[in-house]
Design a protein around this nucleic acid. Structure first.
Lengths: 250, 250
DNA sequence: AGCTTGACGCGAACACTGTTCGACTGTAGA
DNA sequence: TCTACAGTCGAACAGTGTTCGCGTCAAGCT
């Protein structure tokens, strides 16, 4: 893509890795620079508006035109503060990751600590449906995501997991959390109502039961188990299984 | 969505679950019906063209207009054989799943058998970059995907895994394979060239090394491990870890 | 004080996307 | 031969991301 070009006009030079690192301890207000301009359009306002939109209608409704309209302007105005829609996406993802807090690593409770981080990340993802889709693409390109990665890695290392399995496990865990939330967003987004999912489950069991038992014996026999799992039971199960597999390493 | 409406005009009534089950043992040629019309436009030809397009340029390039153009017609003509673009997507996904063969379950080699299925599915997914995105959304709505699910479930059950963990593990494995391939597609698609990835790895290590060691100690210390993993080593690692966690269950 | 400069705002347009309408075929059955 | 209808498709609609280029307005320099 055109990701390697410099910034066209305004906006912080977010492409410069060193600059981003240097800006780590200075989260000041106006996004443009030191100048105290009275311009009402800022990266912060754009992000706030975008967050409201995603929270209310999902990431698919996040459109440059809609953000601009909510700010009483045209879409072209946004491109002075944000390079791309992809750029805006990554900004949002970074802000979501920044909300997740990582605990001080404690060797005795490393499994629960890791699960807590995952649960927090999951809840933040699900609060902004569809944002996890962005995470599936741009994983290692944000300092806020890297902070999470760092925290989880430290937890695993403190827990006694060897460096390579720890690093790879983090990758897998991140991927799973993102995919889980992405899938959940896609399934819940179009229709509203929480009880609709229960009906869907029953309908799914019915469908499985209707299958020919000679070609789908296991599916027919265990239709109930295939569709079970309240709330985030599957989420917990998968992560716990993965961690157990890590622990069982010789 | 408009997924619950009946079919508008031509095409098999693919929405009808019973009809789809009944059609399981009759994979005849012309997609429309018994009539031996000489109409050149069929579901099969549309799917073939779509596959060529996805294989060559990725799923993002799969456009109704481009498929139609490749068939020397307008986009409106496709809607007589395919309800939606989503419908076409699911058709393609089903065909991809149909290519994966599942072995007869053997209790002694259940882990390797499951891994083999995952590897096959992965290779098919990666052959059509981006098709895995569809799998993240519409997982349980295709008989071909269900055949895979059935096969994997049987392998796990034969291996001695209890029904509920087996069913949930399949879900997790499917999700992981899809997400892994989706991520890979997104990373490799824009630029070409295989060696570019190696350069990227070196650049990534460099970036990690540049981080402040006080806030990112583990990342800086283990930058090498964080970026390591040739080919599908991480893929194997994650699935093996998950299976080990399953096996370690009391 | 006057002028220049340049960043920002934004209306209009371009090149796309999925999808539908309605007129148009060509062939099958009566 | 006439009718009916499944299949075809040009044109259009309502969206999308993004860019061009004209405005405007305040800051900085002379």
């Amino acid at each position: 893509m055109a990701r390697d070009r410099g910034v066209r006009r305004g906006g912080a030079a977010r492409d410069d890795w060193a600059a981003r690192i240097a800006a780590l301890d200075g989260p000041d207000g106006p996004g443009t620079g030191g100048r105290a301009g009275k311009a009402p359009l800022t990266v912060r306002r754009i992000m706030d508006t975008a967050f409201e939109l995603v929270e209310a209608e999902g990431h698919e409704a996040l459109t440059m035109r809609r953000v601009a309209a909510a700010l009483d302007t045209g879409p072209a105005s946004l491109y002075a503060h944000v390079r791309d829609k992809a750029d805006l996406d990554e900004l949002l993802l970074g802000a979501v990751c920044a909300r997740v807090s990582v605990p001080e690593a404690d060797a005795a409770r490393w499994e629960e600590q890791l699960l807590d981080v995952c649960r927090s990340l999951r809840d933040e993802y699900l609060r902004y449906p569809g944002i996890s889709r962005v995470a599936l693409a741009a994983a290692p390109d944000s300092l806020d995501a890297l902070r999470l990665s760092e925290g989880m890695l430290t937890i695993l290392l403190t827990g006694g997991v060897a460096p390579r399995p720890a690093a790879w496990a983090i990758d897998a865990v991140f991927l799973y959390v993102s995919a889980y939330c992405f899938e959940m967003s896609l399934r819940h987004s179009p229709e509203a109502g929480a009880d609709q999912r229960v009906l869907d489950r029953e309908a799914l069991v019915e469908r499985y039961r209707l299958l020919p038992a000679d070609t789908f014996p296991s599916t027919v026999a265990h239709a109930r188990e295939l569709t079970s799992g309240e709330e985030h039971e599957r989420f917990e199960f998968t992560l716990r299984t993965l961690l157990r597999g890590l622990d069982a390493r010789p």
